[in-house]
Amino acid sequence: MTKSFGSFDPLAASLRIRSMLQELAIPGTLPLPIAALMGRAERHEDKGRHDVTADDDNAKAVTWMLAVARDADQQAFASLFARFAPRVKAFLIKSGATPSLAEDCAQDVMATVWRKAGQFDPTRASVATWIFTIARNRRIDILRRDRRPEPQDLPWGPEPEPDQLDAMVLQQDTERLSAALAALPDNQRALIERAYFGDLSHGEIARLTGLPLGTIKSRIRLALEKLRQTMT
């Protein structure tokens, strides 16, 4: 905890984030189908929360992904494209690609989203997270011209019918992480963004500590364990 990076104080940040997470905590998760998440907006508004739209978007994106994976649903793919292709393009531009290269790569990334849809597991990642990993790998291919070794796919996952409660809880955890990052002071958030745009050296990244990842990590760990138990 003695490490610091400029004005970034990891201990203070993690304490701030912890108290923020407590405020945000959504009590009692109900075993609703993922699609039913989409109807939660009004209840949230009753309580005066502001993260409603994003929450809603997250759940929608999950249903679109599953529709692509199961039914090759082109309408759902069009919705994913409208939501994520411009973000992937912006992400690549911020990582140093020209707009025209970024446009081409964003198309490639979205084509991979379609092809690999069966590998998306909503009990382990949000759609944004999953697409981020594809976009990041594409960035390394294109901008660094390096090969990108990827971990071996789990031979036994994801399940064709992911557990909906597990998926919902993971999506909520991701929401809270997003909210926590959004609430960081500008300079701290900018530093994290620069790291993910590929704009920090490894030495600088080693000093980025204190991100509130414990809850999500534990949740993913349980999902992995469950997958192993189901399939072995």
């Binding site: 973000r87 990642a125 949000s126 997270t129 981020f132 990993t133 976009a135 994290i192 993910y196």
Partner: peptide, 11 residues
């Protein structure tokens, strides 16, 4: 990676 997802989503 979830942090990267949050960054992508906030672009």
């Amino acid at each position: 990676d979830a942090v990267g997802g949050a960054v992508l989503d906030s672009c």
